[in-house]
Design a protein around this nucleic acid. Structure first.
Lengths: 355, 355
DNA sequence: CTGAAAGCGCTTACAG
DNA sequence: CTGAAAGCGCTTACAG
């Protein structure tokens, strides 16, 4: 219920300092040389009057536009995950487009390094104000990062990070910790981690550091309990082959009623769920990642117990708002923005689907 | 990489229609009588040119301000929960204050109906543009709601809802479903719900419908498994008394190694955790609500297994953005906005604390 | 190094 | 029912 104080504006400062608004503008925005004395005087008045720029008027007057370029993998059936960050980016952009923000979306073909490079070069050539990218090819990404830096263009890595890289923003999940959460969830149920499995199914060869970190976190937790998980690695996308390999690795479970936990290190957990369903292994606990349609189905039918969400929509959303705050609002933005490690079950999933 | 098209503006429409911008403004914003023919012509051109108003220019020119009034319980040690919605409200407001949005915060003393009424009347008297309130006294709230309606002032209920009330916005959790989630989490661990407890500790007499719904959801799940939870109701805030009553109700657990699950229907779950700790009952599974400091402590020390977050900060945040979208952006806002039912454990809590 | 003036796209009295 | 003009707070050439 504070009384309304009239906003102090540039013209107030100008008047008080006995100069024109142009001069005040120059010192506020560093737009040219101003006599040191005048400059100091204006600075003092600004402080005294507690001046705050009127961001709406400012963006309206300056017809400047900022262009955000995004580079994500093309989403397809094998890759529906990447639809979500794209939608998050779109949603955030729609909220800020009034500020003269332009969004230029680029997509590369997931496993084609040439496609990645080509699009990345196009972005560099277009000199955007800021970049959001999935840094899947780390060496190409690092090269590009240097170029962007030299052009003073901020870059946001989305979903996965590049090791030891400081000059970037990152929006994503703490992968190691998510592995720990997975282990904890199994532990909670089993009270005995003596026979757990880590299953890798067709994990990326590119940009797979987060998969390794997930495994690391999981292992860390399990070995803290004095146990050692078994690892099964499957390098195919073919469902038949996957099934055969699961049979080979998990066949022993069929003859024992013993409760066992399985951690699948990516979103392909539905393959394991299908296997469990086929063999009626309802007592096996299964944890994996991401709310793909297939995973949702098995979660709702009790073959997957927990899904860990990477919050892909939010990743996109926060990438844009981060860039906006940095470029337009001139605010400090944290270099690393970890999103929550959401635990999704059959009973709470509905409230995570329709953002 | 769409080519940039120049924005179509009111003057373009005016020119094409052979009228002044004032007339165009009149039809766009319904600001006065316009000859039907002219009106139709302008409408057609607007459609044809796909005109979109420039919201920044509009709010800059119209010096109109919108005032949002909030009414929350005063937060204190017994009630730190309410700090969070307040912070969320503040944060959202800071993001939109440029649009000439004024925030007027009001607080009432939690258990004093007079205080509630007094502040509510003050808000009504101040004729705000929109209201955010914790509707703790339902009959007073309903009266006020009618008044606000007659003044055409939108109202957001935060955290708890009022039964059968349609003419309001609600931002909060699906309480019944959160009880189901709690039961599912215990079920996941115990595989046997034959001996579970529901414990009510000093639940509000006012605005306690969400507590009842939580119990209902929990019961629903448990009875779906053919079981019936025991209920313990404790009507004191005094820790000694609570302990004595817990002793009385849970004493039997001390002599049995049997795994049991306990569901505390509100944030006072830390009292039960303290009891379990004192009696070394590590094998009992405990679920409750909210990330109070005390609860965080017991979660990290394994006496509470899961906390369900009501996302109080987000509740505040979304209340403001909802009102903003409704009042300033003239967007459709859903009447009921359920927030996710976040499952918090020792291992993921850190990523939920520092929004 | 500095000022005067026009303009961003829309809104608001005012006059007719 | 309609138009002309001033103004919101800031930025941008331009002239000096």
């Amino acid at each position: 219920m504070a009384k309304r104080y009239a906003r102090v504006k540039i013209s107030d400062i100008a008047q008080k300092a006995g100069v024109s608004t142009g001069t005040v503008d120059r010192v506020i925005n560093g737009r040219g040389e101003v006599a040191p004395k005048t400059r100091q005087k204006i600075l003092d008045i600004i402080r005294e009057l507690n001046y705050e720029p009127h961001i709406l008027a400012s963006t309206l007057a300056s017809k400047k536009q900022i262009r955000i370029a995004s580079l994500l993998p093309e989403a397809d059936k094998n890759n529906s995950f990447w639809l979500m960050p794209d939608e998050g980016i779109q949603a955030a952009w729609e909220e800020i487009s009034h500020y003269g923000v332009i969004l230029e979306k680029h997509y590369f073909t997931y496993h084609e390094v040439d496609s990645f490079k080509e699009k990345l070069d196009a972005i560099i050539g277009s000199k955007p104000s800021g970049v959001i990218m999935a840094p899947l090819y780390s060496s190409l990404t690092q090269d590009a990062l240097e170029v962007f830096q030299s052009m003073n263009i901020p870059v946001v890595f989305i979903n996965s990070d590049i090791e030891n890289q400081q000059n970037r923003f990152f929006v994503g999940q703490d992968s190691r910790q998510s592995g720990i959460v997975a282990a904890q969830l199994l532990d909670f149920s089993l009270n005995d981690l003596s026979q757990t499995f880590i299953i890798h199914i067709f994990t990326d060869k590119i940009g797979n550091t987060h998969i390794k970190k997930r495994e690391m976190g999981f292992r860390e937790y399990v070995s803290g309990k004095g146990q050692n998980p078994l690892t099964i690695t499957i390098n195919t996308q073919n469902h038949q082959e996957i099934e055969a390999l699961l049979e080979q690795g998990l066949g022993m479970l069929e003859n024992t009623p013993r409760k066992t936990g399985i951690f699948v290190t990516n979103s392909r957990v539905y393959h394991v769920a299908a296997y469990l369903k086929k063999h009626n292994l309802n007592h096996i606990r299964l944890v994996g990642y991401d709310l793909l349609m297939e995973n949702q189905y098995y979660l709702k039918n009790d073959f997957i117990d927990f899904l860990i969400s990477q919050k892909p929509w939010e990743q996109g959303y926060k990438s844009v708002t981060g860039l906006f705050n940095n470029l337009v609002m001139k605010k400090q933005v944290p270099a690393t923005q970890y999103l929550p490690i959401d635990i999704i079950t059959k009973e709470n999933i509905d409230y995570y689907l329709n953002i």
